[in-house]
């Protein structure tokens, strides 16, 4: 029975390790998912904006600027904030071009 006390420290270490890894991996997975989601959004917005630009009858300087900035950000492949910024720029450019298309 001299070894049986080992169950306490080993058990405590195992519990701590399991709790830590479960929490850490779950959090990392969530962060990864959020990032990918944001970039999916951003790419969709940029593509939509690109279509709107092709369809616009005139050149809109501001929209061009925003669009190029969004594409630059997307080319850098940053994190969550970058994806949101790119989405924002692309959406604004899209709205400007659509307004131009409506005349």
């Amino acid at each position: 029975m001299t070894w049986s006390w080992l169950i306490w420290p080993v058990g405590v270490v195992l519990i701590a390790a399991a709790g830590y890894s479960a929490t850490y991996l779950a959090r990392r997975r969530t962060r990864d998912l959020l990032r990918r989601t944001a970039w999916n959004n951003a790419r969709a917005a940029i593509e939509a904006a690109g279509v709107s630009r092709d369809a616009a009858p005139t050149t809109v300087e501001e929209a061009e600027l925003l669009y190029r900035r969004a594409e630059l950000i997307a080319a850098d492949h940053g994190g969550l904030a970058a994806a949101r910024e790119a989405t924002d720029h692309a959406d604004r450019a899209d709205r400007l071009w659509r307004a131009a298309a409506r005349g």
Binding site: I15, A18, G19, S21, A22, L25, A26
Partner: peptide, 10 residues
């Protein structure tokens, strides 16, 4: 039990 339930979802 805790270990099994923590690790299986991973």
């Amino acid at each position: 039990v805790f270990l099994a339930l923590s690790v299986t979802p991973l």
